[in-house]
């Protein structure tokens, strides 16, 4: 952006205001908080002479609401795999055809096709990870590979557990814990899950996306949490450990897509190609502490990250992974009703 020196802050601001509408060489990135390495944006910005602006959101639901309202001004967005159909059904994503991009061959074979974007017409991988539980071992040192941590918590943890307000993940894990299928429409199972959540709620401190500081300062001792975020917390307070509930934990991939009404389409496509470069994918992994899907990126990754316990699912627990999905409308409606009752 050009700098105009006009003396007063007001005048300078008004000038900027007039210019910002016509600025060129921009890229507006819309991503979850703490999910975009500043070095990555800097590198992209230098390589292609593009000014990159980053805006945070908290949840997929929040992001799609803003995108749908229109006038958002974003070019690229990170979308969780299970949420891609929600965007595609409404024509919110651009068919940028990453499969035809120069760096596409870098994607590991198992990620070249995902159920919600089988031909990779819209998205490229960002990172993938799991949703499990994180517990302060100084407070509780029993088994943490179970959803009982938040559904039937041990005495030590009661009152200092956090739940992330990620509706589908929470209900999927609960259904799985009681032996039912995620996305079921069986009202018996659903009401059992609801009752279990309602009684467990008594033991929770909060239902929130908490700041890491709340764990580091030990305001909270346990939480439903994501593998990479848990690795970050452990780096700052080594009392915390991450567990994969054997009765079912979530496995997901987040993806980078271009919005249908993006204004900087060329830059957005460059960016999609850019993140499939191994050294750039490694930057993302090093910052977010999640696995990426790009072969050859290990060479550029922090050694501590490669050996991080949170990223390596134990052999015996690999079968317990639940692929994150969006349920059919009927189940989704029942999920929402359980959730409203839970968070009232």
């Amino acid at each position: 952006m050009k700098r105009t020196h006009t003396g007063t802050a007001l005048a300078a601001g008004l000038t900027l205001l007039a210019q910002s509408a016509t600025a060129e060489g921009n890229l507006n990135v819309y991503n979850f908080g703490l999910y975009t390495p500043p070095e990555l944006l800097e590198k992209f910005s230098q390589e292609y002479d593009v000014e990159v602006t980053l805006t945070d959101f908290v949840a997929n639901e929040e992001a799609i609401a803003r995108i749908q309202a229109g006038g958002h001004g974003m070019d690229v967005i990170i979308v969780s795999g299970y949420f891609i159909p929600a965007y595609v059904d409404q024509g919110l994503l651009m068919e940028s055809n990453p499969a035809g991009m120069e760096n596409f061959h870098n994607i590991a074979d198992q990620w070249k096709s995902i159920p919600t974007d089988p031909e990779r017409k819209f998205t490229v991988p960002w990172v993938w990870g799991t949703t499990g539980v994180m517990v302060n071992r100084k407070v509780y040192d029993g088994d943490i590979n179970t959803a009982a941590i938040f559904l039937d918590p041990p005495e030590e943890l009661k009152g200092s557990i956090n739940i992330v307000p990620s509706m589908n993940d929470m209900i999927d894990m609960t259904l799985s814990y009681i032996g039912a299928e995620p996305c079921t429409t069986d009202r018996e199972s659903l009401s059992k899950a609801r009752d279990l959540l309602l009684s467990a709620k008594e033991n929770w401190a909060s239902v929130d996306y908490p700041s890491f500081e709340k764990f580091i300062n030990e305001d909270l001792s346990a939480s439903v949490f994501w593998s990479g975020a848990a690795a970050r917390v452990r780096g700052l307070n080594d009392g915390f450990a991450y567990g994969w509930p054997k009765d079912g934990y979530m496995k997901w991939m987040d993806n980078l897509a271009i919005l249908a009404d993006a204004t900087n389409v060329e830059n957005a496509k460059l960016f999609q190609n850019f993140v499939m470069q191994p050294e750039n994918a490694a930057l993302i992994s090093n910052y977010t502490m999640y696995n990426n899907a790009i072969t050859g990126s290990e060479a550029f990754m922090d050694p501590e990250l490669i050996s991080a316990p949170e990223l390596a699912v134990p052999e015996e627990l690999q079968g317990a992974a639940i692929e994150q999905t969006l349920c059919a409308p009927e189940a989704q409606d029942l999920y929402t009703r359980i959730w409203t009752e839970l968070t009232r």
């Binding site: 900027l16 205001l17 910002s20 509408a21």
Partner: peptide, 18 residues
């Protein structure tokens, strides 16, 4: 205001401090 301005932003394309 957010709901209304979203429409205005879409029509005008202006994203400034205004």
């Amino acid at each position: 205001l957010m709901v209304v301005l979203a429409q205005v932003k879409q029509v005008t394309g202006y994203q400034g401090l205004g």
